[in-house]
Design a protein around this nucleic acid. Structure first.
Lengths: 344, 344
DNA sequence: TTGTATGCGTTATCAC
DNA sequence: GTGATAACGCATACAA
């Protein structure tokens, strides 16, 4: 177990001073004679020298690193988001430290502290909704914060990237109304979240548009964690006058919801039309293939990274940005006109 | 945008020297009077002081960080593995920097360099198979390396955690043979990988045991990336004498393989019995629910983390460890006796 | 028990 | 063009 060479080793064996080596390492930091540059580069290669990140960061005051704070990587939505972000970040030479919160504000608080210790220059996060002061403090310390998928409205000055929640919910609802459904159930995220509210509003808007009353009992805002989606589905199906259509707009609860549907053996779309918010490949493999609102998480990833990096390089105008990306509705075979819907 | 307080700020406002502060920060590094300790702790809290990681690492010579190198987070197997590892690591106070390789040795090489720069004290990885010297160098520099799921046999002295590949393949094959099948196809990973070979051997062993000849054309070792699984399935189904059973033992290719099966509309298990290596929840949601070899990635995660941490704390005996965890076979409804299998 | 001084590896400032 | 040298923030050996 030998120890890694330092800039001094390079300087010594190349017969120059550390300043010269540093300058070839950071090309724009000063002049260096072409001949010496070659020498130094050769030695660097020979010795396998690599500058230590810790030293750089200490000197620079901040790290070429961003924090990625998601709730849970076992949710394919976040997993794929993370995948794209890591990938995109790499191509810009920035590392990603990953933290998960399990939707728990305490764990989130922990993560934010740690990120601060690391002096990351940016954070991409799906906030739990708590820790307002902590997020503010982070920003105050010069960390660029970008929220993705959700947001915290109390927090000014933070960039946000999300899908068109209102519109997506409205379109799905319209589609089902167009099929003749009047009792459409909605399983969505907590009302405390921006996402949850926007989707409920979209659902409502579609009803108003069609002069349809909405039965509040058909709207279930459930937590992101646990089996809440499945439970909601169970309870909806047990209603005296059950819904003939269902929209699962809580991405984290799609799997649990669908599992319940499969378990109770309800026939889709004959007995129930179904639309889910997801972009999971397996929705296509079911029978019938599920109609989905496909979340373009490539776009989410690209935009959020663009934002942090842009901020880091100071090449973005002041003032928070709000980017909404369109989510496509993909009709497959899980929805049918009400006419052919059996009576329960 | 104010700047974060340093240890000096704390020392000053607490009316002590930096060493005292440092000692309360690192309890076992020296004595400090109870009264002063309280003072310092109070000031730390008031100022919201947190030690900077970069400075600590520079001083210590290494970081309380591990690198996690996986091929691809859009593969749920790795996503969930990552989730568990991050979770487990957090509870031990170590951060995780995440990198993906896309199965590309070049990207992997890049990642290893970066990890070196960061002076991580440990790496958990799913190696691509290349970069032998680089892995060796990493170890030589004192980085604890743990391979998970796969391994590189040329590399001595590295800890490995994997599932019982040979046994899992053998049991699946035996199960199908027991059902009367004699033409069992196997889609697995590249023969260059330890995993791929072990699974082929297991498959072979089951055949020998039953005095059954193996048709080499039924064994398809395909890459981890791309649609190779689907293509293999297509080609298998097009054989003059197609298989009556299929084992997809390449976790990364399960989705593409199953998609193909769904596309061609083959009836499972009537026309084809199917077993896949996976632990993905959606396998249960299909009709019929797929029989699977369930990879206990909780165990993989826990063990690999235990190994790196154990090495980091020097509390593990010398010499490489090889941990194999059992994978359960879960019979669902995608396999049927040959008797009821239709003639193609 | 406490404080002072030095080093960790780099970058940046400034003389030369 | 180049080379000392002082930060950067923390830990630590050593002196007090």
């Amino acid at each position: 177990m030998k120890k890694a060479p330092t800039i001094r080793d390079v300087a010594a064996t190349a017969g120059v001073s550390v300043s010269v080596v540093s300058r070839v390492l950071n090309p724009d930091s000063g002049p260096v004679a072409p001949a010496k540059r070659q020498d130094v580069l050769r030695v660097i290669d020979e010795l396998g020298y690599r500058p230590r990140a810790a030293a750089r960061e200490l000197s620079a005051g901040h790290a070429l690193t961003i924090g990625l704070v998601v709730t849970d990587l076992s949710n394919p939505f976040f997993a794929r988001l993370a995948d794209r972000i890591v990938w995109e970040a790499r191509s810009h030479g920035v590392q990603v430290v990953l933290m998960t919160t399990q939707e728990d504000p305490h764990l989130e608080a922990d993560s934010l502290d740690t990120l601060l210790d690391r002096s990351v220059s940016g954070v991409i996060a799906t906030p739990t909704g708590g820790n307002i002061e902590k997020w503010a403090r982070l920003q105050d310390l010069g960390v660029n914060v970008v929220f993705v998928d959700r947001t915290i409205e109390e927090l000014a000055d933070v960039d946000v990237v999300s899908i068109e929640n209102f519109d997506s919910a409205r379109r799905s609802t319209e589609y089902l109304i167009g099929l003749g459904h009047t009792r459409i159930a909605l399983v969505t995220g907590p009302r405390q979240t921006s996402t949850g509210r926007a989707r409920i509003n979209g659902y409502r808007a579609a009803h108003e548009e069609a002069s349809l009353a909405v039965d509040p009992l058909l709207i279930r805002d459930v937590p992101f964690r646990g089996d809440s989606g499945g439970d909601a589905v169970g309870s909806l199906l047990a209603m005296p006058q059950p819904p003939t259509a269902l929209i699962v707009a809580n991405t984290a609860q799609v799997q649990s919801s669908v599992r319940r549907l499969v378990q109770v053996g309800i026939r889709i779309p004959d007995e129930l039309s179904v639309i889910v918010f997801d972009d999971n490949p397996w929705t296509e493999l079911m029978s019938p293939p599920l109609s989905v609102i496909r979340q373009p998480l490539d776009m989410l990833a690209v935009h959020s990274l663009e934002l942090v990096l842009g901020r880091m390089q100071g090449k973005l105008p002041d003032g928070p940005r709000f980017i909404e990306v369109k989510a496509d509705f993909l009709a497959r075979n899980s929805c049918a006109p009400l006419a052919q819907t059996a009576i329960h």
